[in-house]
Design a protein around this nucleic acid. Structure first.
Lengths: 179, 179
DNA sequence: GAGTTTAACTTGACAAGGCAAGCAAATAGG
DNA sequence: CCTATTTGCTTGCCTTGTCAAGTTAAACTC
């Protein structure tokens, strides 16, 4: 059934794999922790608010927002419930299509994002960039761009029956508004 | 209270941050998916079995195993329940210390790990290393080692009241047995 | 050596995410 | 137009992780 010698990791690869995995497991938790303490929200929720704040009219259809935030629709639906309860977002049926729901960032939501962003950026710096040289930042960008591109392929090839092919959606993350 | 200009991310940093975050969010999910399909277990469970398989007598105390797997004790306790139900691990009180519990990898567990490892490694290659040059692999090792070292500091400084200081535990991940 | 403190787990209640089923609006077909 | 299908979202159930409390054993104090 399986190959006798399945191409093990080289020593150099193993030396990269362990800290990479550790980083992948801890980075989201570390971001969650800071945002939870300072702003009472998760990293994912912040990403949703940030994504909304960058949109025309601070409004997006849920299905598109889910795509922007790398989320499933059920997950997003529940998160919007919570953001709605907090008064940061409002839900409203799309007048142009009764099936769709529009999420809009409220003024209170804008304030919240603006109040939260500096601390979040500071944490990102402290966790990642403060320890890297400019050259390493460039290397990191190149490498992670390659890796994350793999997930795009995965997402398109594996789970779907093959639908729309979508060349336009190159998979932007929700944090566009950080820059 | 807060600085007027909170040191925003540079363009280069933002270019690294977005794909890094995407990678951190998707890598664990992608590993889970493969292991779930091929072996009926999560990435975390695989990590626990792999950590056990590398130990003298395939046996470790739960508290130390939790440290090796970057896990909390409650989480590990429940995972061991499941691994126990599957016959891959057995629990046994530590004869040397009645408070402690020893987890031992069974023969069936060893077989499971050995049967699972090749597919897992193949996935790791496909997701990460197949797209990187040897130089990039070295860069990645250097960079992620720096980043993950930050989490060690975080874990020691932030949440604890200041306990043992532990210079010995440099935070190895559970995947030692991949190399 | 009895009483208190600490350590190692376990358990229970609760929140979060995933999957599948349900529902309502829009589109398509005849 | 009336039905059938598809699309967009919501809901319910189940699994999993976290936090706090409980339990038992060791260590420490006097």
């Amino acid at each position: 059934m399986d190959d006798k010698e399945p191409r093990w990791l080289t020593e150099a690869e193993a030396a990269a794999w362990m800290p990479l995995l550790a980083t992948a497991m801890w980075l989201p938790a570390a971001l969650d922790q800071q945002l939870q303490v300072d702003a009472g929200m998760s990293n994912f929720e912040y990403g949703v608010l940030a994504a909304l704040s960058g949109q025309e009219g601070r409004t997006v259809r849920l299905s598109e927002l889910a795509r922007m935030a790398n989320s499933t629709l059920p997950r997003l639906s529940k998160v919007i419930d919570r953001l709605d309860r907090n008064g940061w977002v409002i839900r409203r049926p799309d007048p142009a299509d009764g099936r769709s729901t529009l999420a809009t960032l409220t003024d209170k939501g804008v304030e919240k994002v603006e109040a939260t962003a500096p601390g979040h950026v500071a944490r990102v710096r402290a966790l990642v960039f403060d320890h890297l040289t400019p050259a390493q930042v460039r290397q990191l960008a190149t490498i992670t761009t390659k890796i994350s591109a793999t997930f795009e392929l995965d997402r398109i090839c594996a789970p779907r029956p093959s639908r729309d092919s979508s060349a336009e959606t190159t998979g932007n993350d929700a944090r566009a508004s950080l820059a």
